[in-house]
Design a protein around this nucleic acid. Structure first.
Lengths: 347, 347
DNA sequence: CTGAAAGCGCTTACAG
DNA sequence: CTGAAAGCGCTTACAG
């Protein structure tokens, strides 16, 4: 029985492995780095024995020297949108398959997100991925000062800085406008969520632009104010009571749309889709449930996650890369039961 | 300008701080440990200067010596239940407030959860919290061998080992039975989710026991098989078509109940609550939405999370504690719109 | 009460 | 190609 195995509670270290193999720790260590110069037979021996003993290098000791931690910080807040939990777990799984670990920074109150990020930075993540959070600019700067570039996923940084992975929300907004217009809708409106969110602004702009280009007046704007069911619901109730003519609505995202529809139905004055068609954005799982069957513009989610993970791998190796924004084409508009053709539709 | 400040990119270290203060690193280090013996004036000076320079001890260097990492591993999988994202982020926020950081282990396929846990263990978490995952026993053993006790949240470990924080699901099942029986329901059924889940088993048992004690036959069991909307939906469709008499249904949890109701409605043969009353379990946010207004047994979520965090703090200090299970009383039954009184009700 | 020294588990110049 | 040595940033006996 080897020394390493005898000592039960303790992890196997390079020293154990070196003694076991009758080599120096330097040689053993080098065997784990493909670029390091070691006799190939030596390397084979080391790796074989390491696997047998269950040796795993201690990442803390490693990072003390290499200044890399293989840790990805993930900042989340404001999880009223079911879009993000899906992304969070799926992307964590992908990052773990790439050998990186995810450390979470979460806050139950927006103003505490800064403390959470501070604590996270203590562990020197190689980079930080920001989901959903309205992270203040100084938080991003703090990350970068600590050597961790930030990738904003879906929603971009308010100041436009940092890395970003998103879809072409403007093109998505255009798809929604085309769908409603092609199906004969005349009275369009946009249900706006958080005004400070790039996603909200861009979807609105695309929807508007396309409507105008196709000869319509700029669509009315209904302010929901936040990306949540409750906000959508209130907006739906209010819009139904306002008495303004309305037959085609594009909502900032799915959860707002689902709330909006409930609000409209609740009003008892109009029905979806009989009187009003509603289009969402994201295609979250819930949108496909028989309960909702929401017509929506899909996000190119797999592509966005793949792009984020691949960018993360690059940044983990070399932080010095110019920040840029990756914008993927939106997914298709998925027609379900919350929109229908009106008289005069051309589609 | 101090040495530390001049050197922009680099973090302030104890050495910097010691030089700045004209003390030894030992003394500086001790100042951060309340139990260490240092002149109180010296400690004051150190802490003051540390705050000014933004010094934060490097947790990797610390953990190399102390063998504590202040890292909590959180294992998640199978996130079809919206209950868990809420818990995950809220509990992360609470743990961060207690100075601990959360590292995630996620897998998009159940069989990969083991690799994810292995990678996680590399970072030597002080303990592991298991959410939702059907973590195999050997994974728990692996954690414990690596020095990280496991806390199972909500759903207990299949082998009953490890720490656990859950609510008294059996009492919750009884509440559901009482509510339905008090309101005159005669034909009860339980919609069963994952048969291997302690929550499923216990809720079923409580519901059954209480019905029998009150003079009813053991309620029928409708197998949904999983804790998901889709599973509930299929069960609802099937139950509505089966033609068996049915007027009061208790579902394994909210998301199953929401799916079940949609399935029943879809069948067109019965309506909720006019023909069939449905009770869920959890009181997730969605249950309170006007779309659903689900009658449900609430989880004592705040209590469960507080208990978990406090147990985590204890275990982070001393791992040697006998594993035990904390079982909190269930929350109230919240009556909403998916149940109604039938003739003969006594309530 | 404080400081010099050893050491946690690694990596990486530097010799040989 | 390999090994001895230094060092990453800390903590903690051990002297004094």
């Amino acid at each position: 029985m080897s020394d390493a195995q005898r000592d039960k509670g303790r992890r196997v270290t390079v020293k154990d492995l070196a003694r076991d193999l009758g080599m120096s720790v330097s040689t053993v260590s080098r065997a784990f780095y493909p670029d390091a110069v070691v006799a190939s037979e030596t390397r084979r021996l080391v790796l074989e024995r390491a696997a047998a003993l269950g040796y795993r290098p201690n990442p803390f000791a490693q990072s003390l020297i290499t200044k890399k931690t293989q840790i990805v910080g993930m900042v989340v807040a404001d999880l009223t949108n079911p879009f993000y939990p899906e992304v969070m777990t799926e992307m964590t799984a992908m990052l773990q398959e790439a050998g990186m670990n995810v450390m979470l920074a979460a806050a139950n109150q927006p103003e505490k997100i800064d403390d959470a990020v501070d604590l996270l930075l203590t562990y020197q993540p190689d980079l930080v991925i920001v989901l959903a959070a309205n992270m203040a600019s100084h938080a991003r700067e703090k990350c970068e000062r600590a050597g961790a570039p930030c990738i904003f996923f879906n929603r971009l940084s308010a100041d436009g800085l940092g890395f970003g992975v998103t879809c072409d929300n403007e093109a998505g907004g255009r798809l929604a406008a085309d769908h409603l217009i092609d199906n004969g809708h005349k009275h369009l409106a946009y249900v706006s969520a958080f005004p400070g969110a790039s996603t909200n602004v861009e979807r609105h702009r695309g929807f508007c632009t396309q409507a105008v280009e196709r000869g319509f007046a700029p669509p009315a704007v209904i302010e929901a104010g936040r990306f949540s069911y409750e906000a959508g619901y209130a907006a739906g109730l209010e819009a139904a009571s306002a008495g303004r003519p309305l037959d085609g609505v594009f909502c900032a995202n799915d959860i707002v749309a689902i709330g909006f529809i409930a609000g409209v139905q609740e009003s008892g004055r109009f029905r979806v889709p009989d009187d009003i068609s509603v289009v969402g954005f994201d295609d979250i799982t819930m949108a496909g449930w028989p309960t909702h069957l929401l017509t929506t513009v899909a996000q190119p989610l797999d592509g966005m996650m793949a792009a984020t993970v691949s960018l993360a791998r690059e940044l983990a190796v070399d932080r010095r890369q110019d920040p840029h924004i990756l914008r993927l084409p939106p997914g298709r508009l998925i027609e379900r039961n919350t929109t229908r053709r009106r008289d005069g539709g051309i589609a």
